[in-house]
């Protein structure tokens, strides 16, 4: 049996990494995939699998979270043996993240005859839009499952779209996208990386407010976060000056710069500009709390 995961008619244009799920009871299966359009560059802080590979996780009925199976690139064997993880005939779900710095042109699952297999379509009730620059894009991560947006999607069972750019001056790019008045769906939560350590201050000044206003058109609530080292504290002040003028109780401004404090710096950051897998985990945990305690609570209570 072949499951062609790219054949599903789902709009994935804003999904990076792309996310796929299927269900099977096979003790082994093979993943055939091809990638194109790999972005090459100076990436000593990016995992090869995030750049041009896939990441596979699985979940049995009794499991309380998805569990890592392994990462693969085209060069490595993609036969997945599950007999150490699931019992014979036991049904389980598989989650596959595509690459972040490449595109998938083929993604097919070969399941041995006599086993079950079906594609799981995306029917998430929670829709999130993540907009931002290098951190939100996943630069600094080893695998695509470890970006904070992937963690949010996985843990909250949410559908996550991304308007993220591998570009220090990303606010201009996000704004350009919105200027075209795209036909976006409505999102429960918008998450915006407000600034980046190397973003031109003029770009931030010109586009930050505008970007939030644009996101508000599509998102019920917007979380506007930043994570900046101490030597860039002038940027924090500028963000607050710009955002003080936004008089909405549906925009939450959050400072995650604690990642650069002594307690977390060594665990979560590289050398000032980049956040690693653990930094992404910390950002995910903060965002999850805000989404559950503020955004969804607000959504539930309405505008009373």
């Amino acid at each position: 049996m072949i499951l062609d995961l790219l054949s599903q008619n789902q709009n994935r244009s804003l999904s990076n990494p792309q996310v796929f799920k299927f269900r099977t009871n096979a003790q082994n299966f093979r993943i055939n995939f091809k990638i194109t359009d790999t972005i090459h560059g100076n990436y000593p802080h990016v995992g090869l699998s995030l750049q041009e590979g896939i990441m596979v996780l699985y979940k049995k009925e009794e499991d309380i979270c998805w569990l890592n199976v392994d990462a693969f690139t085209e060069r490595y064997n993609r036969q997945i043996y599950m007999h150490h993880l699931v019992k014979e005939n036991e049904e389980y779900e598989v989650l596959i993240y595509g690459p972040v710095l490449s595109k998938l042109s083929v993604l097919k699952i070969e399941i041995p005859e006599g086993n079950t297999g079906s594609i799981i379509t995306n029917d998430s009730e929670l829709n999130i839009l993540v907009a931002g620059g290098l951190i939100s894009y996943g630069i600094g991560c080893t695998t695509a499952s470890l970006t904070f947006s992937s963690m949010l999607g996985r843990k909250l069972e949410a559908s996550v779209d991304q308007l993220t750019y591998n570009n220090a001056n990303y606010l201009e790019k996000i704004n350009e996208y919105f200027e075209k008045e795209p036909k976006l769906r409505k999102y429960d939560v918008g998450i915006l990386e407000a600034d980046y350590v190397n973003q031109n201050d003029e770009i931030t000044k010109k586009y930050l407010r505008k970007t939030i206003e644009n996101m508000q058109k599509y998102c019920k609530t917007v979380i506007c976060w930043y994570c900046l080292p101490k030597y860039k504290s002038s940027k924090k002040e500028a963000i607050h000056r710009l955002l003080d003028e936004i008089s909405s109780n549906k925009v939450f401004i959050e400072d995650f710069s604690f990642l650069f404090d002594k307690k977390y710096n060594d665990i979560c950051t590289y050398s000032g500009n980049f956040i690693n897998d653990s930094g992404n985990m910390m950002i995910y945990k903060e965002l999850e709390e805000i989404i559950l305690e503020k955004c969804l609570f607000f959504d539930m209570m309405g505008d009373f």
């Binding site: 996780l57 392994d70 695998t143 470890l146 060594d266 979560c268 690693n276 897998d277």
Partner: peptide
């Protein structure tokens, strides 16, 4: 915690820096 298993390692066993710490 069991619900951290997919966060503290990059695969089945190899820790992120948080796991290492």
């Amino acid at each position: 915690e069991e619900d951290e298993y997919d966060l503290i390692a990059i695969d089945a066993s190899h820790y992120t820096d948080y796991g290492m710490y």
